[in-house]
């Protein structure tokens, strides 16, 4: 579907490191991405078959001298090599995908709180049960209006309050608009949590969920896995998937066609459920799309379509109204 070769320069840099290691080339099916830590096959998305690897033989995909992908056992990497690969991944991750400006559209009329998005996201990013990169909230705008479900990822703002306050560049905005986390850099001051008005960020208060299994994995800044104790995590627009030309985890997991995702510079968004592509500007204009709390001036890159002509009536815990909720 795509051959989005990353910036030639970054690729060349990566090859240098590849040649340091000099692993024999192994033909790999998926071309087009320059280094990616293979995750254990537990992700189990609908319609996506991934080879399951047992923890003991976890493999890492690396790019070799001649631009081929190779798989090596994580345990065979020396610490020095591991560092080199990690920093190459980090460099590529910090750079982003040139020419892109990712945007998401969430159709509130279609959401019925299935939470497939939340599940697939937590799976992909190895999150604990209470950690949400995307959270489906129950909202009610005024007393007499109907409640509705509102999935809330990170909005990857164009005037991000979180990256403003980070003292060490551990959270930063890349050229394609994605606000990423570098948990190898993060000092855990949590200023970004305080700064984010959308409560989009979570913290690893304890050892992360898959701490032991993930030990050998290369740190992929575009996936923020392995998670690390004492650092921040948040929605990354599945930067690792975008690099492969795939839609984000949550977007493709949704069974109800809630999510559209695409490139603002192409003015096109693709529905994760039906695969249909429409013009972003048209979709937003025709459906009176809006962004959340625009008065804060954060300029979000996630748009909502109002919950009008709802496909599914609101129902939560057997109730059709919102009562006894903790007020936010």
């Amino acid at each position: 579907m795509s051959d989005n070769n990353s910036n030639p320069n970054s690729r060349r840099d990566f090859l240098k490191i590849g040649s340091l290691i000099g692993i024999g080339a192994v033909a790999a099916g998926a071309a087009g991405y320059a280094g990616f830590a293979a995750q254990d096959g537990k992700e189990g998305h609908a319609g996506e078959a991934e080879t399951a690897l047992s923890d003991s033989e976890k493999k890492i995909k690396v790019l070799t001298e001649d631009g081929q992908l190779a798989e090596i056992k994580a345990s065979e990497l020396s610490p020095v090599q591991k560092d080199e690969y990690t920093s190459a991944l980090q460099e590529q991750g910090r750079e982003g995908i040139p020419g892109k400006h990712w945007v998401m559209v969430i159709d509130l009329a279609r959401c019925r709180n299935v939470r497939a998005c939340m599940a697939s996201c937590q799976n992909a990013h190895h999150l604990r049960e209470e950690q949400h990169h995307i959270n489906v909230l129950r909202m009610q705008d005024a007393e007499h209006t109907e409640p509705y479900f509102m999935p809330k990822p990170c909005f990857h703002c164009d005037n991000p309050p979180c990256t403003k306050v980070c003292p060490v560049d551990a959270t930063f905005k890349r050229q394609d608009g994605i606000v990423l986390i570098d948990n190898e850099r993060c000092i855990g001051c949590r200023f970004c949590i305080a700064a984010c008005p959308y409560s989009a960020r979570v913290f690893n208060w304890f050892e992360p969920k898959n701490e032991e299994e993930d030990q050998d994995l290369l740190y992929n800044v575009e996936l923020n896995v392995p998670q690390k104790k004492g650092t921040i995590s948040k929605c990354l627009f599945s930067a690792d998937r975008l690099r492969e030309g795939k839609l984000p985890y949550c977007v493709s997991a949704c069974p109800n066609g809630v999510y559209y995702f695409g490139d603002l510079n192409e003015d096109a968004v693709t529905n994760g459920t039906s695969g249909e592509t429409t013009r972003f500007s048209e979709l937003i204009r025709k459906n009176a799309g809006y962004t959340l709390l625009p008065e804060l001036g954060t300029k979000p890159n996630v748009y909502y379509l109002p919950p009008k002509n709802r496909m599914f009536p609101f129902e939560f815990n057997g109730k059709t109204t919102l009562e006894d909720e903790h007020h936010g």
């Binding site: 040139p98 020419g99 892109k100 164009d158 403003k164 890349r174 050229q175 510079n265």
Partner: peptide
């Protein structure tokens, strides 16, 4: 033609160090 937003080249309070 598009004019990509060069987030990584903008001087701003939110930009990198």
């Amino acid at each position: 033609a598009t004019h990509p937003s060069h987030f990584n080249e903008t001087r701003a309070l939110w930009a990198d160090r």
